[in-house]
Design a protein around this nucleic acid. Structure first.
Lengths: 378, 378
DNA sequence: ACCTTACCTGAAAACGGTTTCAGAAACGGT
DNA sequence: ACCGTTTCTGAAACCGTTTTCAGGTAAGGT
C-alpha cells in the first residue's frame, strides 16, 4: 500500500516548486512543462480531491436524490443525468429516499456539504427540504415534482395535467363514460396534477364519476393491485381505467389477471410512463409516454448552468410534453356490463380497503387465474 | 450566502479551543460538552468532509460502478447496496460504464481517490481495471462478474451455471430436444457461465445442438430481438429457447410477437432474472430468479467489512443460489414443427446477421403486430 | 549599459479539520 | 499538605492543494 504521491513529490522529481506544478496543472504556461509531465506520469500522480476542495470550496460532485432507483422512470432519470456529467468534471452521489420526507431530510443533511449542487425529486409538495437546501446556498434543481416554495426553484416537470387529460380524452373518444382512475398521492406534484387532469377532463365532458372511481394507489405496485381490486368489486364497475403511474399499472394488471377480466374487451386500461415491456404485453399497453432520460439530462444541464452562471438568476420552470402511445389495451366499451367470475369475487373481497403489508408470498407468483364461471351482475 | 461556520466559530462561541471541540465531536468526555452542543446547534455547524478526509485519508464514500442502472437487475443491486450504507456512515457514488472497459477505466480513474472502497461490476472478464484498483490499494468487491485475476478479489456471484442448467433441465424434462439459447457476451462471467451451463446440460442429455442454436445477443434488448429473429429464420427452428438475460428476453419476446409465434404452443421460452412484468405477460414468463437486492446488499456488507477489518484477509467468494420460477411460458413441444406465417418470413429476412444501430425510431413503439392471422386468447 | 515591460517563479499563507505533546487541573490516598 | 495518578486542556504541527505576493530573469526599447 504505497502512499499516493503528492504534488510535493512531483515538484521534487521535476526540480521545481509546488506552485509551479500547481500552475501547470491549471493550464498556465510554465517553462518546465515537459519535465513536470514526465514526473506526473512516472509517479502516477493524481491531485487529491479532498485537499483541492478544502481550498477551493468546490467538491466537483453533484447529488441526485430520488425516491427509488428501482422505479424505471427514476432509473432513466439517473441515466440521463449521468450522461451529462460524464462529459464534464462532475461525479454523482446517488441516494434513495423511499418516498419519505424524513429519510430525505437525513440524506440531504448528509450530502449537503459534499456537493456543489443537487438534483432532487422531493417526496412531497409539503416537503421542507428544498428550502433547507436554499438556505444552505446549494444550487438545486427539482425533478418531476415541485416543492412548497414553487417558483423559487429551477424545476423540470412534464405536463402531468395534459398527459392525464389526453389519456382520459382518448377513453372518452372511444365512447367510455364510466372511467375510473388509480391515483397517486395527492401530496406529490404528479399525483395531484394527474388527478386534476382526470377530474377536469371528466367534468368538461359533463360526467360526474362516483367517488369510488378515484382510487388511491400510492404510486406503489401493491397499491395499484388493491385499487384495481376495489374497482372490480364495485357493484357497477368502470369500463375504463386510467392508472396514474407505471408501478401501479403493474399491480393493476396483476389484479386484472388474477380476476380474469379481459382487456380491452371487459375493461380498457391506460397507463402513465412507457416501458419496454408495455409493447409485449397482451394486449400491448396504451400509455402516456414522456421523455424520461431527457428529463434527467435537462435537469442536470440546468443545474450545471445554475452552478456556473450567476446564481441569483430567476428560477426556470421547464415543462416537457407527454405523448399518447396508442397500442391495444383500449377499445370502445362493451354493450353489456362486464361480468366478474364467481370465484373471483371471493378473491376480490379478500382485499378490502386496508393496505396489505407487502406483495404476497414468493410462491404466489405462479398463481393461475381462478375459475371461469360467469355470473351476470349489475 | 452566509459562509458555513467552522470549528473555530464553534470554539469561540463555546469559549474553548478547537481541539476541545474536535474531541467532543469524536466522543471524548469533555467538560464543556453542554456549551459546545449549544454552540453547534446555534451555529448549525457541520464539520467539513473535505477537511476531515484531507487529514484522515478517509472519504466516507463508496463507489458503485455498474454497466447500466437502467437494467432492473443493477437497479436492484444499487438499492440493495444503498440499503446497507444508509444505516452507516457512508454515501454512494454511482457511475455507469455502458458495458465498456474504456469508459469503466475513465470512471474508475475519476473515482479512485474519492472513495474508501468500491463495488464494481466489471464490463468484461479481461477487464484490467480491478487490478488497477488493487494497485491503488482501494478495497474492492466485484459484483456479478469476475475479473481476470479471479481469486484475488472478494466477489458476490450467483450460480449462473446452475441457473442455466436448471432452465435447460426444465425444458428437457418437458420433452424438448431442440433447445436453443440466446447468449450474452462470452467475455463476461454471466455470459460465459450461462452458456456453459446450457452446453453442458445439453451434452449430458446426449444432445448436440446445431451451432446456430447458440445465438449471441450481447445482453441487450435489440440483440435479443435479432437473435430470436435468427432462430425463427432457421429452416428447422428450435422448440424452446433459453434467453440468458432480462433485456434480451424483452427483445426476444418482441420478435416473437412481431412474427406471431405462439408461446408456449409453438415455442417455449425461459428467461433469466425475474421482473414484476414477467407475471403479467401472456403467458406469464417462466424464469430463473435470483436474490437481486440481496446480492447488492451482501456485496456492500462484504466491502464494509473488508474496509474495516484487516485488509490482508483472504478473498471471499460468495455464490448465491438461483431458483426456477415456473409460470406458463414452457410446455411440452408440439408434435408438428411450428409454422412461420408467410408474411412474417419476409420480416425475418430483414434482420440478417449484422447488428442494427439502435432500437427503431421512437414512433416504432406504437407498431401493431404484422399482418398475421394468428390471434391467441385463452 | 540601463530601464521598462512582460513573464515566470518560489516562499508562505491560507482552507478546516485531527492528532500529538506537554502541561494544568482535579482527584485520591497517605 | 503532599505526591502520584488520572483526566482534561490548548498550542502547534500536519494533511495536499490553491493563491497571493514579492521578486527574479529574459526580452525589448532607448
Amino acid at each position: 500500500m504505497p502512499k499516493p504521491p503528492t504534488i510535493t513529490d512531483v515538484a521534487d522529481e521535476a526540480g521545481v516548486s509546488i506552485s509551479t506544478v500547481s500552475r501547470h496543472m491549471r493550464g498556465d504556461r510554465v517553462r518546465a512543462a515537459k519535465r513536470i509531465d514526465r514526473a506526473i506520469a512516472r509517479l502516477r500522480y493524481r491531485p487529491s480531491p479532498a485537499a483541492r476542495s478544502l481550498k477551493s470550496g468546490k467538491t466537483g460532485a453533484v447529488a441526485l436524490v430520488v425516491p427509488d432507483v428501482t422505479n424505471p422512470f427514476f432509473a432513466a432519470v439517473v441515466r440521463g443525468a449521468e450522461s451529462i456529467t460524464a462529459q464534464g468534471r462532475h461525479i454523482i452521489f446517488l441516494a434513495n429516499t423511499d418516498e419519505s420526507d424524513d429519510r430525505e431530510a437525513a440524506v440531504i443533511e448528509d450530502l449537503l456539504s459534499r456537493v456543489d449542487g443537487m438534483l432532487l425529486a422531493p417526496a412531497s409538495e409539503s416537503d421542507p427540504n428544498p428550502q433547507r437546501l436554499a438556505d444552505a446556498g446549494v444550487p438545486t434543481v427539482l425533478i418531476d415534482r415541485e416543492g412548497p416554495s414553487a417558483g423559487c426553484f429551477d424545476v423540470v416537470l412534464v405536463d402531468n395535467y395534459g398527459g392525464a387529460r389526453s389519456a382520459v380524452e382518448h377513453l372518452l373518444s372511444l365512447g367510455h363514460e364510466r372511467i375510473a382512475t388509480i391515483a397517486g398521492p395527492v401530496g406529490s406534484t404528479p399525483g395531484r396534477l394527474r388527478l386534476e387532469g382526470y377530474s377536469a377532463t371528466m367534468a368538461d365532458a359533463g360526467i360526474d364519476p362516483p367517488s369510488a372511481f378515484v382510487q388511491p394507489g400510492g404510486f406503489m405496485e401493491h397499491g395499484g393491485y388493491q385499487a384495481m381490486m376495489q374497482l372490480l368489486a364495485l357493484p357497477d364497475p368502470p369500463t375504463a381505467v386510467f392508472v396514474a403511474n407505471n408501478l401501479m399499472t403493474i399491480g393493476a394488471l396483476r389484479a386484472i389477471k388474477d380476476i380474469g377480466v379481459r382487456v380491452p374487451d371487459d375493461l380498457s386500461i391506460i397507463g402513465f410512463d412507457d416501458h419496454p415491456f408495455s409493447e409485449i404485453l397482451d394486449p400491448p399497453l396504451t400509455v402516456v409516454g414522456r421523455p424520461m432520460e431527457q428529463q434527467g439530462a435537462l435537469a442536470m444541464r440546468m443545474l450545471l448552468s445554475r452552478m456556473s452562471e450567476n446564481p441569483g438568476r430567476m428560477a426556470r420552470r421547464v415543462v416537457l410534453d407527454t405523448h399518447l402511445i396508442q397500442r391495444a389495451s383500449c377499445s370502445p366499451p362493451r354493450e353489456n356490463p362486464m361480468s366478474i367470475p364467481q370465484g373471483a369475487r371471493a378473491l376480490i373481497n379478500k382485499f378490502p380497503k386496508h393496505p396489505h403489508p407487502e406483495r404476497g408470498s414468493p410462491d404466489g407468483s405462479g398463481r393461475k387465474r381462478t375459475g371461469t364461471t360467469l355470473e351476470r351482475r349489475n
